[in-house]
């Protein structure tokens, strides 16, 4: 029987901030990561836990001008059912649909995926590709951290111990396209071997791409952006030559490892091929 750490259950965000200011606590939202770690005795159990589930201030999906804001406690099921997400962020809906089973999607949250900081977190490449900002806060106030600065090392984030993820802000950009592709061991309930989000804006004139984002999971210690590959695609049109150069650049840019799910070589090659396919599909050749 695993250890049961003491749990605080704040009723308001202010109360939660005060608890965190007094002592470090492991935040739990849906519990889909933390409970597995405790029950499976995967590493030392947290000393203290703070249950965020009742903090309704952290729920909700809404438009704020040109920005879409998602509360940290937004579940994957809510993302899948959200008309706003379906219209503006179909890639995020795609990602949410691949995470776990229905039960996990009912409990698992976007904020949890962000704070858990798994390199295989399936929503994270989408956030990176969409230039999302992560709003964090605590007794010392709120601050906004760009997604690309958030995951600093293997399972480590820019969050301070007294801070929580509050919401995610995603700028809605005209003519931006985004694609999502996950490669896993089976068709559902699989941790990814390679996961990729690709975003770009097309010039209405020549069809050239700008603001290209190539974001990946499961190929590095953190979710990453492949900036050298982005540079190859930026300003180019989605031709066969571009796709080949981008795929080759990506294969050289990432440094995946062998693990229990796949091999480094497979990940590197498949990441390149998935990118090649996405560019090919966009180019229609």
């Amino acid at each position: 029987m695993p250890a049961e750490p003491p749990i605080e259950v704040p009723r308001s965000l202010a109360e939660a901030f005060a608890i965190l200011a007094a002592a470090p606590h492991r935040p739990v939202a849906g519990g889909t990561d933390v409970l597995v770690q405790i029950a499976g005795e995967l590493g030392p159990p947290p000393e203290r836990v703070i249950d965020l589930w009742r903090l309704d201030e952290l729920r909700g999906i809404g438009l704020e001008g040109d920005t879409l804001a998602l509360g940290a406690l937004t579940t994957y099921t809510e993302i899948r059912r959200s008309a706003v997400c379906l219209e503006h962020l179909p890639a995020l809906v795609d990602a949410a649909a691949t995470i776990g089973a229905a039960q996990i999607q009912n409990r698992g949250t976007l904020g949890g995926n962000i704070a858990n900081a798994s390199p295989a977190g399936d929503s994270l490449p989408v956030l990176l590709a969409m230039d999302a900002e992560i709003v964090v806060g605590g007794v010392r106030g709120e601050q906004t951290i760009p997604a690309r600065d958030f995951w600093v090392a293997y399972r480590r984030t820019a969050l301070q111990p007294d801070e929580l993820v509050l919401r995610v802000r995603i700028p809605l950009v005209a003519r931006r396209e985004i694609r999502f592709r996950k490669v896993g061991t089976r068709r559902a309930q699989a941790i990814s071997k390679v996961v990729m989000a690709l975003a770009w804006r097309s010039s209405p004139g020549d069809g050239g791409w700008s603001d290209v984002r190539v974001a990946l999971g499961s190929v590095a210690a953190t979710p990453i952006r492949a900036t050298a590959t982005e540079a190859v695609l930026d300003g180019a049109a989605p031709t066969a030559e571009t796709a080949e150069r981008a795929a080759a650049t990506l294969a050289a840019e990432i440094q995946p490892i062998d693990d229990v799910r796949s091999t480094a070589d497979y990940r590197r090659v498949v990441a390149a091929r998935v990118l090649h396919r996405l560019v090919r599909d966009a180019g229609g050749w």
Binding site: D33, I191, A221, I257, V260, R261, A264
Partner: peptide
């Protein structure tokens, strides 16, 4: 691999 122990090598 308990989850995603992908660290850069």
């Amino acid at each position: 691999a308990t989850d995603a122990a992908d660290t850069a090598r």
